[in-house]
């Protein structure tokens, strides 16, 4: 490894260790409900939800609540994927996710496995991603935090009849640990220019603009960037994106195909998979 890589590794570890203590203190105070503004903000939520935050539960009630909550999560996420075709925020007009894939994804995201057995951008509507997948990213993580807390309380209290309140733990983990952290990370991503909007996809438009006044993507000669992007764009018609309205891309593809040694992308596939 280079010196820069070692420095990066050391800086990362130092930052991680330096953040562990203050973050742990924050999590402890927030999950314990010791912060005054947290108490004030939570009070109306408990009233709305009909939860007595001081009323602790035994392990059976706690477990049952956790299982019930996540079972409802599976149902909601499955239903959302199956119904996305008739729901709003679906500018690409995606149909329902296939029942087996929808069930797989629902179970996977509720259990924090987050296995993406689907092509995100060509399968899930914005609504499904925001109201289903992203919500479960929070709730499954909150479930993990709640389980750890219940376990710690069970150990720490030796012989106690209760291990906390599952609804209080889930709400506090989500509101005061996961949401603030994700807000900070979202700002970092936005600061780096990550695109996030509710508009229809603008596939190929950026590329068309880049090639309008240039023969190649980088510099004045073909580079690995051209080869790489060509390999993806060659599949655009199969993915439902016609290349008709993009003359600069069409001309660029012809230039690549005229390069010495060019072979079609399918020639890279194993013999049995070739069309």
């Amino acid at each position: 490894m280079s010196a820069a890589a070692w420095v990066q590794l050391a800086a990362f570890l130092a930052l991680l260790l330096a953040l562990a203590w203050p973050l742990a203190r924050w999590i402890d105070a927030a999950m314990d409900g010791r912060l005054a503004f947290v108490q004030r903000l939570e009070a109306p939520l408990w009233r709305l939800a009909g939860v007595q935050p001081g009323a602790e539960q035994g392990w059976r009630a706690y477990t049952l609540g956790l299982l019930l909550f996540n079972a409802l999560g599976v149902l909601a996420l499955y239903a959302l994927q199956r119904a996305q075709g008739v729901l709003p925020l679906n500018p690409q007009a995606f149909g329902a996710v296939a029942h087996d894939s929808a069930f797989n994804t629902a179970v996977s995201f509720v259990t924090n496995t987050n296995w993406q057995g689907y092509g995100g951008e060509s399968t899930m509507s914005y609504l499904t991603q925001m109201l289903g997948l992203a919500v479960q990213n929070f709730l499954s993580a909150a479930t993990g935090i709640a389980v750890v807390l219940a376990l710690v309380r069970g150990f720490a209290r030796h012989s106690a009849a209760s291990i906390g309140n599952v609804w209080v733990d889930l709400v506090r983990a989500t509101l005061w640990v996961l949401l603030p952290l994700s807000f900070v990370f979202a700002l970092a991503l936005a600061g780096q220019g990550v695109v996030q909007n509710l508009a229809p996809y603008t596939a190929l438009k950026t590329l068309e603009g880049a090639l309008a006044n240039a023969d190649w993507l980088v510099g004045r000669a073909p580079t690995i960037a051209d080869i790489d992007v060509y390999g993806a764009v060659a599949y655009a018609p199969q993915a439902g994106f016609g290349l008709d309205g993009y003359p600069a891309i069409a001309a660029w593809m012809k230039r690549i195909e005229a390069l010495p040694g060019f072979g079609p992308v399918t020639s890279l596939l194993p013999q049995a998979s070739r069309p």
């Binding site: 503004f37 004030r40 903000l41 109306p44 925020l89």
Partner: peptide, 30 residues
């Protein structure tokens, strides 16, 4: 449909925000 949905979601979020701010400012009423 998207605009209606977003407007409804926005109103709901605004109502929750007002509710929480009110709870923060006048906790004795909650």
């Amino acid at each position: 449909m998207d605009a209606v949905f977003l407007a409804a979601a926005g109103l709901l979020a605004a109502a929750l925000f007002v509710y929480l701010v009110a709870a923060l400012l006048r906790p004795e009423d909650f």
